[in-house]
């Protein structure tokens, strides 16, 4: 259901006729002038309104006309177009957001400056807050400086450690080469003829000594002397038991 429209009583702009409404004779002429002026402004305003409305209708017509070529286009083209338009929308959106943020900031700063002008600088909470913020900023800067110094120190220590590591590495390499050299020398020596001859000699001597040992043992046993009584003799006999190849 629709109710009958409620209408505003005054058709003219509210300001019209305000000057002559009181009915004072000296002001009547001036009131007529203002009325003419009011009419002029009304006409100008109506022109602006009509222009704006015309613009809206035009944009409406344009928008509805744009639909027809889309039907002719291929699917892929449409998809590409959609993507393009979406990108455009995104760009416009970000630009809009940025602008809004900037405006917000400008508004805020203007309000703040106006406020600052108004209030007493000695007692305001805002100034206290700002001072506090400055203090905190100084503290933060100091702490950052400290942390930077500490970081520098840490870096120095790390550098030193790296240098030490490199030095130890080179030392270890030297030791390794030295050891290898020794090994090589040993191998060379073992393989030489002299060593072989000496080894053969040693083997021969060991065999001879073993035979002599056995001989002495048998001699002592054959003499039927009680070798266990004399400690010196006992030691000698037991010494002859040693296997010379195990030395």
């Amino acid at each position: 259901m629709e109710m009958p429209p409620g209408e505003q009583a005054a058709t003219e702009p509210p300001d019209s006729g305000a000057g002559g409404g009181e009915g004072r004779p000296p002001q009547v002429a001036g009131a007529q002038e203002t009325r003419a002026e009011d009419r002029l402004t009304l006409l100008l305003r109506l022109r602006a309104q009509t222009k704006q409305q015309l613009l809206e209708y035009k944009s409406m017509v344009d928008a509805s006309e744009e639909k027809t070529p889309e039907q002719v286009m291929q699917d892929k083209q449409i998809e590409a177009k959609i993507e393009e338009l979406e990108n455009e929308i995104e760009e416009v959106k970000t630009a809009f957001e940025m602008k809004k943020l900037t405006i917000d900031r400008i508004q805020l700063s203007t309000a703040l400056s106006k406020n600052l002008e108004k209030i007493n600088p000695q007692t305001s909470v805002l100034m206290d807050n700002m001072k506090h913020i400055l203090k905190l900023n100084k503290l933060i800067m100091k702490s950052q400086q400290e942390s930077w110094d500490l970081e520098e120190k840490l870096l120095d220590v790390r550098k030193k450690r790296l240098q030490l590591k490199q030095a130890s590495e080179s030392k270890l390499l030297e030791i390794q080469t030295e050891k290898n050299k020794q090994k090589d020398d040993l191998a060379i020596m073992e393989n030489s003829d002299k060593i072989k001859a000496i080894k053969q000699n040693l083997q021969m001597e060991i065999q001879i000594t073993t035979v002599i040992q056995h001989m002495f043992q048998n001699l002592i046993l054959g003499s039927k002397a009680n070798w266990a009584e004399d400690p010196a003799l006992k030691e000698t006999v037991l010494q002859l038991e040693k296997n010379l190849t195990m030395i």
Partner: peptide
């Protein structure tokens, strides 16, 4: 309607849509 406004305001009230098509609005 009490608001101070340069344009002429018309306020229509409706309980629900659609509006009757006959009315000249």
């Amino acid at each position: 309607l009490k608001e101070d406004c340069a344009s002429e305001l018309r306020v229509h009230l409706a309980r629900s849509l659609p509006l009757p098509s006959s009315a000249n609005r």
